[in-house]
Design a protein around this nucleic acid. Structure first.
Lengths: 348, 348
DNA sequence: CCTCTCTAAGCGAACGTTCGCCTTAAGGAT
DNA sequence: ATCCTTAAGGCGAACGTTCGCTTAGAGAGG
């Protein structure tokens, strides 16, 4: 495609052997200052750029990290993708690494094959995984083959068999509950996910622990589970609002923003005003949360910090052979208070 | 990191020279069926995977495409990122290519340097650009150096100096106008972007042509320009609704969803009901559009088709040296009608 | 029996690096 | 004068491929 400038050409111009040029470029040289200057001049003049394939063939490393993720359904934006990617490749670039992204295959075998191929062809040195759930096959697959990786998320609460960072979802939801209690709520419901979701279960735990900490009883009738969509959120809320007065909730804690959006619609459909009559909270702090009517109180995840840190750790692993401690880390999300809770004006 | 299996090992096992193994693997061999079988057996048994660096060093191509994009601000999700990326790497994978993504540098020189480095080190064979605007420096930079690329978007209306695909924004907005006219609207306003945005200007043209086609006069007082945020959309709409009765619009066409969200809030603030009293349309069909109250009529871009096609063209360029015709292509977006317009019930 | 052709496979070279060891010359110490 | 040390840089090899030319042998044609 283009005429590549090689070490040999630079060497010829500078009047030294090409291996010496290599040494100078990699600053491993015992060379006189004048020679070094001549070499750098030649490099600049010829616009020399070290060839990537040659280098990685010799060094047996690609300085490339692989990443794939499950695509979001059409009606559900991935709220963290852009930020997560950007943070990762900025961190990577600092160390001379790049990110190779590749298709996510739903078929498990095909996905694992892709991991295998990318690693054993030497296209990537390691991987970043994300959005893990119970029984994720990639983790044992990679562990078993000693393929380096780090993860955003974990498989089980107390698993330390591989390096990860994760958001302390329970803590986030507990904060939301605490916030609602402070506003005067005593009957707080939860819109939860199906119990095959580790993230969902973890968040739901925060609901229970938050209530307990506030000295409130938990009531199984106030916990509704379903797919995390607006439709489910809406239906579930309709049901909650039709409960008899003495247990009917005055606030709803939802495990993601989408269900919270549905909840607010249902509140409105019931002739009530979300925010003023019924407090609603979400999780994820999606960009549109602030533009809803009323703006939605939600929980923000420190995505950039996680991406940056994960990448740093992975590269450290690749270059030194071991992770910086701690191997696994939980980070706290932060509650963003908006009108959907702050506007509470009890009717009584 | 791992013990790579090489051609030589396979060859030893199969009892042939390693070059012959190479030929068989690349199906360029004149080899007896039995030998071929022996070789494939050895490949399977040793789990041989051709080394990427070796291959690309020899072939002088990386089978990798570079892509970077401007990160979205925190409060504004990139509505097409996930879909665009996924469509590109599926198309790429089919041809044995992968996507390398790298940090977007706002500082122009640094961005161009990154392009240069990635290409001349041989890390990538070409690029995909996106979201072009007037005066985008990367385009002449790449053209001048003969670096292969394709773009999502264009620089000027009738530029054919480089290969691109773009959405016919004017046509999309014209469709929205036509739709509103059919519903009975006669006074239609536009929320437009600052005039340094090519995309914005293109969409706005559709507003004018739509009106003209419907035999309606255009009124400069009904066009408000500003950054495409919800705040601006809200303010501008407040202003429009305060116009004297005879020119006050009954519908608002907005150049993106975010401004439309703001517009609906302003309509509500004015004591009116968006959808029923004032029609509102957006552009982009962001995932949340359907969850707004009322659900927002918007314009959907065929992102997947574009990503797939762009990738296909770029690879064709890389492998054959020329693009499939047509070099530049416009595709029509589609109007998605929802309550924010369909609910129109004129007061009179 | 000799030459020609064809098939199956071998072989040398090259792609652009980096790595570690070797050589050379100069200078200082003995 | 001899030996040792050190600085400066050369040199061969290897990383894993692919490419194109060569060769051995078999069969065909005269």
């Amino acid at each position: 495609m283009f005429k590549p400038v090689t070490l040999k050409e630079v060497a010829a111009k500078a009047g030294v052997s090409y291996q010496t040029v290599s040494k100078v470029i990699n600053s491993k040289a015992k060379v006189s200052p004048e020679t070094e200057q001549r070499i750098w001049d030649a490099v600049a003049e010829l616009n020399y750029t070290p060839n990537y394939s040659g280098r990685s063939l010799r060094q047996q490393r690609s300085k490339t990290i692989g990443y794939t993720w499950e695509p979001s359904p059409q009606d559900q934006a991935n709220p963290i993708l852009d930020e997560f990617l950007q943070s990762m490749f900025h961190a990577a670039e600092e160390k001379g690494y790049y990110l190779l992204s590749f298709p996510f295959h739903t078929e498990e075998k095909k996905l694992l094959d892709t991991y295998r191929e990318l690693y054993y062809t030497g296209r990537v040195d390691g991987f970043v995984l994300s959005r893990l759930n119970y029984g994720e096959a990639s983790v044992p697959y990679l562990l078993q083959r000693n393929i380096p990786f780090v993860a955003f998320g974990r498989l089980e609460e107390d698993d330390h068999s591989f390096p990860y960072m994760d958001v302390d979802g329970a803590r986030g939801i507990a904060q939301a509950v605490e916030h609602l209690v402070e506003l005067g709520h005593r009957k707080i419901a939860a819109l939860a996910w199906p119990d095959d979701s580790r993230v969902g279960n973890n968040r739901l735990e925060g609901y229970f622990s938050g209530l307990t900490k506030a000295g409130l009883a938990t009531d199984p009738r106030l916990v509704v589970r379903g797919e995390g969509t607006a439709e489910v959120g809406s239906e579930a809320t309709g049901h909650l609002l039709s409960l008899p007065e003495e247990i009917r909730p005055t606030a709803i804690v939802s495990m993601n923003d989408l269900m919270a959006i549905g909840a607010m619609q249902a509140v409105r459909n019931a002739g009530l005003q979300p925010g003023r009559d019924i407090g609603v909270t979400g999780f994820d702090d999606t960009p549109t949360a602030r533009y809803l009517t009323p703006p939605l109180t939600s929980i923000n995840q420190p995505v950039s910090a996680i991406g940056k840190n994960l990448m740093k750790r992975l590269i450290e692993l690749l270059e030194t052979g071991s992770y910086p401690e701690p191997k696994c880390e939980l980070v706290a999300p932060s509650l963003v208070v908006r009108e959907s809770t702050a506007g509470y004006r009890p009717a009584s």
